[in-house]
C-alpha cells in the first residue's frame, strides 16, 4: 500500500498532522509527501524519523518529494 499526501500550499501544522494520521493508519509501507515549503519539508521529515520511518528527500522543480518507508 502506498499513499501520496499532497501538502503543497498548506501552512504548519497541517502537513505534519496529515502525515502523522496516515503514518499511524498505515503502520508500515511507503508514503510520498509532496510539499513546497522548506518548513513543512523539515517538520514532516522530523516527524517521520521520530516515528521510525526512513526518509529520503528529492527536489523536483518548485517542490520537494519526501519518500517515507518502513518495513
Amino acid at each position: 500500500m502506498e499513499a501520496v499526501i499532497d501538502v503543497r500550499g498548506l501552512m504548519c501544522p497541517e502537513p505534519v498532522l496529515l502525515t502523522r494520521r496516515e503514518l499511524q493508519r498505515l503502520k508500515k509501507g511507503r508514503v510520498r509527501v509532496i510539499t513546497d515549503t522548506a518548513a513543512a519539508r523539515d517538520n514532516v521529515t522530523r516527524l517521520a524519523q521520530h516515528e521510525g520511518w526512513h526518509v529520503s528527500v528529492t527536489e523536483e522543480g518548485n517542490t520537494w518529494v519526501l519518500l517515507l518507508q518502513k518495513d
Binding site: M1, E2, V4, I5, D6, L18, E22
Partner: peptide
C-alpha cells in the same frame, strides 16, 4: 475541505 483532498491511497 483540505484534509479530504490531500491524501490519495493506493497509488503506485
Amino acid at each position: 475541505t483540505t484534509t479530504e483532498r490531500s491524501v490519495v491511497r493506493g497509488s503506485s
